[in-house]
């Protein structure tokens, strides 16, 4: 056995973790190598001395200090409980801007216009099948059945002719509402930063960065005027709002957050 091998396994040997054959080989080497024998003795002496170090008793006043800190923390808990409804109201107010299907409700206005115009065409005896499909598609969108709506929807150019400008405005409103709500909640959360531990701040920042990245990606990937492509984006926004709400209410556990 070489010195380097003995050096590598010295700790394991001293802790009795080696097999009998290996231990015997190390003992054999120690008998004939003075340098390794000296290292071995030093390490053995160190371990023995460490195990004999005396336990350290804390000062008597430590217990009172602990009780005092616990008392302070519990009083703070009590005040936090009082603050919670106020905080909840602030958060709710920020979220109230968004009704989960807000943009769809607004879209009813656009749909009504489309139907009215379609009826006008019908009265005039010049209704086109694609325009009829547009009205049906929007009705289904209101019901949340976007897949069927996509199938029934007319080509984009034809749709735009009929009701796209108003729908585009509705979508723009909804986008703005969601983004403003998220910005408001993030601002409120930022005010709490001083009370977070470093670990909490790191976890939260990572989650928020993920939400932001995925939100931008989803937004870039979708069609600007397509109704159904909004579903994924708004579902993501709602998830982020829900996450922010939980964070503001102090309801997040260690592994909570986005499901991405």
């Amino acid at each position: 056995m070489r010195c380097i091998t003995v050096k590598k396994h010295s700790s394991a040997y001293l802790d009795g973790e080696l097999e009998a054959g290996q231990s015997s080989a190390i003992r054999g080497h120690l008998r004939i190598c003075e340098a390794c024998q000296q290292c071995y003795e030093e390490e053995a002496g160190l371990i023995a001395a460490a195990s004999e170090l005396q336990p350290l008793d804390p000062p008597d006043h430590l217990w009172q200090g602990i009780l005092s800190q616990i008392a302070d923390a519990e009083i703070a808990d009590s005040e936090e409980v009082d603050r919670l409804p106020v905080r909840r109201a602030i958060v709710r107010r920020a979220i109230r801007r968004i009704i989960p299907a807000n943009w769809r409700l607004h879209a009813i206005g656009a749909t009504s216009l489309a139907i009215a115009m379609a009826l006008l065409y019908a009265d005039a005896g010049s209704q086109k099948p694609s325009q009829m499909a547009a009205g049906t598609a929007d009705t289904r969108v209101e019901q949340g059945d976007t897949q069927q709506a996509a199938v029934l929807a007319p080509k984009a150019t034809e749709t735009r002719e009929l009701y796209a400008p108003q729908l585009a405005l509705t979508i723009e409103d909804a986008d703005r509402d969601y983004l403003q709500t998220i910005a408001d909640l993030r601002t409120i959360l930022e005010e709490d930063r001083s009370s977070w531990t470093n670990k909490e701040a790191r976890i939260l920042d990572a989650e928020l960065a993920t939400f932001k990245r995925i939100g931008i990606g989803t937004r870039l990937a979708m069609s600007e005027t397509s109704v159904e492509s909004r579903d994924e984006l708004y579902a993501h926004y709602q998830l982020e709002i829900s996450f922010l709400e939980s964070a503001l209410m102090g309801e997040l556990s260690g592994n909570s957050g986005s499901t991405h």
């Binding site: 001395a49 004999e52 170090l53 005396q54 804390p58």
Partner: peptide
């Protein structure tokens, strides 16, 4: 926070 009882070799303890 001195240890409760002196170690056999208090100098070694201190060095450690």
């Amino acid at each position: 926070a001195a240890p409760d009882e002196p170690m056999r070799d208090s100098a070694l303890s201190r060095r450690l």
